[in-house]
Simulated scan of single mutants.
Amino acid sequence: MPEPVSSILNLGPASEAAFARAGIHSAEEVRALGADAAYLALLRAGTAPHFIGYYVLVMGLQGRPWNDCQGAEKKALRVSFDALKAQVGSKKGRSDLEAALDFLGVVERPKPPRR
């Protein structure tokens, strides 16, 4: 039986739901993709980019607590995070202005259906 995404250190039910919206339903899938490809899938599925969410995933896949990321390592991860955001950018059919407003939280996202 596949392991739930929430079995990865630092990830909980909210992360599991976000990955499910991106079509990723197990910890094995997340591990096989790796942090960058998995996070990119989240962004492409409409998850708002959030640096802490990215490095929490990176740390979790390494078996490290989320707050273990510091200094030069954190700066390097920020560069990777920014590159991932740039890959998604306005490729969703949005203007740069819409993407910026979305990033700032001004554009309302549709809420997932309640179960």
Score class of each variant (00 low, 15 high):
residue 1 M to V: 12
residue 2 P to R: 10
residue 3 E to A: 14
residue 3 E to I: 13
residue 5 V to N: 04
residue 6 S to C: 06
residue 6 S to F: 07
residue 6 S to D: 09
residue 8 I to S: 15
residue 8 I to A: 13
residue 8 I to W: 13
residue 8 I to T: 11
residue 10 N to A: 05
residue 11 L to G: 07
residue 12 G to L: 00
residue 14 A to N: 09
residue 15 S to Y: 08
residue 19 F to C: 08
residue 19 F to W: 04
residue 20 A to E: 05
residue 21 R to Q: 10
residue 21 R to M: 08
residue 22 A to M: 07
residue 23 G to W: 11
residue 23 G to H: 08
residue 25 H to I: 12
residue 26 S to K: 03
residue 27 A to W: 02
residue 30 V to S: 00
residue 32 A to W: 02
residue 34 G to Y: 01
residue 34 G to A: 04
residue 34 G to T: 00
residue 35 A to R: 09
residue 37 A to W: 07
residue 37 A to E: 09
residue 39 Y to L: 03
residue 41 A to Q: 03
residue 42 L to A: 13
residue 44 R to N: 03
residue 44 R to F: 07
residue 44 R to K: 08
residue 45 A to R: 01
residue 45 A to Y: 00
residue 48 A to G: 13
residue 48 A to I: 06
residue 48 A to L: 13
residue 51 F to P: 01
residue 52 I to C: 10
residue 53 G to D: 01
residue 55 Y to V: 01
residue 55 Y to N: 03
residue 57 L to A: 03
residue 58 V to Y: 00
residue 60 G to N: 08
residue 60 G to A: 11
residue 61 L to Y: 07
residue 64 R to Y: 01
residue 64 R to M: 09
residue 65 P to K: 00
residue 65 P to M: 03
residue 65 P to V: 02
residue 65 P to D: 02
residue 66 W to L: 06
residue 66 W to G: 05
residue 67 N to P: 06
residue 67 N to Q: 14
residue 67 N to L: 13
residue 71 G to D: 07
residue 71 G to Q: 01
residue 73 E to I: 04
residue 74 K to S: 11
residue 77 L to W: 06
residue 78 R to P: 03
residue 84 L to P: 05
residue 85 K to T: 07
residue 85 K to F: 06
residue 85 K to M: 12
residue 86 A to Q: 07
residue 86 A to F: 06
residue 88 V to F: 01
residue 88 V to R: 08
residue 89 G to P: 14
residue 90 S to H: 12
residue 90 S to N: 11
residue 91 K to H: 15
residue 93 G to A: 10
residue 93 G to M: 12
residue 95 S to E: 12
residue 96 D to Q: 08
residue 97 L to W: 15
residue 99 A to M: 14
residue 101 L to G: 10
residue 103 F to L: 13
residue 105 G to H: 13
residue 105 G to L: 11
residue 105 G to P: 06
residue 106 V to Y: 13
residue 106 V to L: 15
residue 107 V to F: 07
residue 108 E to S: 15
residue 109 R to Q: 14
residue 109 R to S: 14
residue 109 R to A: 15
residue 111 K to L: 08
residue 114 R to H: 01
residue 114 R to A: 09
